[in-house]
Amino acid sequence: MADKNEDETTQSDEGTADVKTASARKPRLASRYRAAALIGVLTAALGFAIAVQVRANSQSDSLSNLREDDLIGILDNQNARGDRLRQQIAELEQTLRRLQGSGDRNAAAKQQAEQDAAALGVLLGTLPATGPGVAVTITDPDHKLTAEDLLDVVEELRGAGAEAIQFGPVRVSTSTSFTTVGNAVAVDGTVLSAPYRVFAIADPKTLDTALNIPGGVAAATRAAGGDLVVDQQDTVTIAAIRTLPSPKYASPAPH
């Protein structure tokens, strides 16, 4: 309000001066233009400053306008927040490691189960198998070999440790049957005729020895007028598979 009073006194002074110099109109006019221009420049500067300040204030980087104390406070807050977040990160990383550990254990168990399943599949004849073994050719020109003789071959191979056996086109497993059908032999219902081809996977030498043991199946075959030839091979592939019936009555007993 003091300013206003000052304004008024000045103004009244000017007013009397105005009356005194009323005749000198021209210089007055020039000075009024100058004053108007000055006022215009000042108010334009004000508008410019307002716009600049509003824009600067509305920028996201409002930190640049803050004072030291405020900045220190904000910095403290950010540090505390950073500490909290770092703690969270540590906890989450720990959780991650724990979960990864259990995941690894699960994966290992799964891998173990898959390996077991594969091994069982090979032994049960549900999966193709490959490995060292023998290819046996049994000829029987006189048709004297009975189902028992052929079963003896399989038993001999089993006794020698054969892990997978294919008799003709049939995969041999625990439930494989050898039956006499008329003059021929059927394996699991598939009628076969000589010469018979038998593949077995195990140590080839052991298999060979087992088949050719004196008084063994080879001798019996030759006694029947046929022949049994064992061919040791580095890689025998048994592609024939069998499907297992799912148990109808039996279920796994809890242990």
Partner: peptide, 21 residues
């Protein structure tokens, strides 16, 4: 009048040029 126009002009210039403080 001049003052008001100049004020508006200043604001417009400030908005257009986007100077940094």
């Amino acid at each position: 009048m001049i003052a008001a126009l100049a004020l508006v002009a200043g604001i417009v210039v400030g908005l257009l040029f986007r100077p940094t403080v």
